[in-house]
Design a protein around this nucleic acid. Structure first.
Lengths: 208, 208
DNA sequence: AATTCCGGAGAACAGTTGTTAACTGCATGG
DNA sequence: CCATGCAGTTAACAACTGTTCTCCGGAATT
């Protein structure tokens, strides 16, 4: 039951979002640790001091960006993993879905890939936590499939981590190929699919 | 035939190395894109203008750091891949070797992981090129093994890329666990080994 | 022994940064 | 309708940035 926002709070969230958007744009060619607060406010067209009404620091803004970039992705994950079809179909579909997501949210993907190992600890921690949640969810979704009967929880989490890491790898590869030719993007998709398929084969023969 | 350096050039290389070392140290808690030239010279105890005698910019210094961090790693790679022993032994040895390297060169590993997707394009390019060379070398080393008879060059490169990516993943995971307990490091090593083993199983069943 | 070369120092430049304080105007709750 | 709250503004602060130009002292060359 979301209360209808007063025009007061609505305005506030609007500039807050403008700050986030501007920051995301500026981060396409630099890292968060070099992003200046004034730089962001200037891009929005607002006074530098207004920044403090929304974020304590640029690191704080970064954590909010992590939420924005990864928070809304959880339903998509579960859908993909628990979808029907044989292994190869699922892989192709997953890779397609990653490619599509990179196409529609390139700045978000770039931000996550860049700041996952970036120079701002709170942001690194936030990303690590979200990715761990992803892995956990993937693990639970896999556990539903009959093919994973007999798998220990440990092994499931190990595999889930492998999948999550490779989703990011593939996403980053797609990102690098975004400005390239269509043929190059196709090549990236084929390599990512084959790598996933190899992992999938390993998974199938893991027990015994 | 390396000519004995004059005390002139020797001094120069010494301060150059001091600049590289200082930069690497400063980069432990920030990204290259926020590293200031003055910051580096201050840490060395040298005038800001001296920086220009060695590097055009901090980005240029970053490229030099890539060379330092990855350039000396090629012999190690080949040794590891082409070493004898069964698959599991090789995996355990490789993981151990990664853990040891992270222990002795943490700053280098952190730099590569951070700047691989970082905000400075020339550095990203340099890292990508070096990693591509690694993958190529790994692919050629694998081709020597009889187990890979019948593998296409394409598939070999795909697998090599998978290995290289996971070496970096494992290295980064070890890095995060460096300040943690010994038990945590052990856990990281076990997960990395199991993931590598799963990939190895997939590799064994790849054909047919 | 005289001259050239060159790594580094010093000072100054315009421009930038984060943060503080005191303010203004308007939506809000009583 | 009036008083309060609060998003955003303005001005100023010391500190910092990259870059240029001029200079120095000692090694290298002849």
């Amino acid at each position: 039951m979301s209360h209808t926002l007063g025009i007061r709070q609505a305005q506030k969230q609007k500039t807050r979002q403008a700050l986030l958007d501007a920051a995301l744009g500026l981060l396409e060619e630099q890292s968060l640790s070099s992003l200046g607060l004034r730089e962001v406010t200037r891009a929005v067209g607002v006074a530098p001091t207004a920044f403090y009404r929304h974020f304590r620091s640029t690191a704080d803004l970064g954590v909010a960006l992590v939420e924005e970039a990864l928070g809304s992705l959880h339903p998509m994950i579960e859908d993909t993993v628990s979808t029907a079809g044989d292994s190869d179909e699922r892989i192709v579909r997953a890779v397609e879905l990653i490619a599509r997501h990179v196409g529609t949210h390139p700045a978000h993907v770039r931000f996550i890939a860049r700041e996952r190992h970036g120079g701002v600890q709170p942001v690194r921690d936030a990303i690590r936590e979200q990715l761990a949640r992803f892995a956990e969810e993937v693990g639970h979704a896999l556990a539903e499939h009959p093919e994973y009967a007999g798998w220990s929880e440990d092994d499931l989490l190990m595999l889930a981590g492998l999948y999550v890491d490779h989703m990011l790898m593939a996403a980053s590869a797609f990102l690098e190929a975004l400005d390239g030719s269509g043929a190059e993007r196709e090549r990236v998709a084929r390599v990512a699919s084959r790598q996933m398929r190899l992992i999938s084969i390993g998974r199938r023969h893991w027990l015994g």
